[in-house]
Design a binder for these strands. Structure first.
Lengths: 177, 177
DNA sequence: ACCTGAACACCGTTCAAGT
DNA sequence: ACCTGAACACCGTTCAAGT
């Protein structure tokens, strides 16, 4: 574990404790027992640190499809996995939303699920819209649930999330030839 | 026009020019030709100013349903109107996402459209999920399109937005009794 | 009623210098 | 390689004092 990884790990812990608005270079330095300027030996800027945090969070969203599932199962698994990754840290969804530039793994996963829908009978244009729509929904839903922290119990939020997802999947199913 | 309204109007102009990350009390004071502390005569905090900006933006989202339209037309009109309100200012969606204490007008509009779906044959639980899903989608979509500024032409974004919305509406339609 | 002047406790960032 | 010390240009906020 390099010092850089140590800084990154501590930054994620701090994010989870204080939220993104109070995630400060100086606070992070304090927690590491170091002067603020010392962090710039490991990351060229705060933005670069945030990017590394995003990359770390995104990497936890496993893209493994459930074996034997149909396209709807894959779509549900992918959406749930994305949401879970964001929920793992306080303000995770907001952090990812400000970030632009999906990594090659995310792009690959995106195209794979689009191909799956196409193979299942959805016109490829519609398949693209469908996957985009699901991700807009996941991001919007998760940002909102994290904004209202603990206001609604997790069980209920999970239920609502699946219900909305089911609605979109029903809409996709209606486009099947 | 009170001085408070003048400050609010200038704040919205500044937001549109520099974005929410560079919207600063000091910059705003500078533009108003005033010392930073003077703004606290009109708003108790920056957060209160942002809240007022949100309220102003939300108020432009007209809740008038199109005359003679069915529930799908109403839902489309409401979703488009919400998106248009956010698009009116740079980072509008992000600004609304961080706060979004829905005013009584928004709550009323929400319940009205839920009632419409219910009257059209959607079970009331499903109607609630449907409207929530549409708003999660609208927020997620608009945050993303504003994050990638000008990368995609507006015509294309409008098309994509309507396509995704159509998918969700098709899903709702599939739940009609 | 509205603003100034001046302070306070913060912020991200840079860089010569130390080990 | 990693960090200190010290500075720089910024933040939001407060408040006595002016008009």
């Amino acid at each position: 574990m390099s010092r850089r990884d140590d800084v990154l790990k501590t930054a994620l812990e701090l994010l989870d404790e204080v939220g993104i608005d109070d995630l400060t270079v100086r606070r992070l330095a304090d927690r590491l027992g170091v002067q603020p300027g010392a962090l710039y030996r490991h990351f060229p800027s705060k933005r670069a640190l945030l990017d590394a945090m995003v990359k770390q969070i995104v990497s936890t969203a496993s893209a493994d499809p459930p074996p034997g599932g149909d396209w709807a199962d894959h779509l549900r698994a992918m959406a749930s996995s994305a949401r879970d990754a964001m929920l793992a840290y306080r303000d995770g969804a907001r952090l990812l939303a400000t970030f632009h530039d999906p990594g090659p793994a995310a792009v690959a996963a995106f195209h794979r699920i689009v191909g799956l829908l196409h193979a299942a009978g959805v016109p490829s244009g519609t398949a693209l819209v469908a996957v985009d729509t699901v991700f807009s929904y996941v991001n919007g839903f998760t940002i909102e649930e994290q904004a209202r922290r603990n206001e609604v119990p997790l069980d209920r939020r999970n239920q609502d999330f699946q219900a909305g997802l089911g609605l979109i999947i029903a809409g996709i199913r209606a486009q099947l030839t």
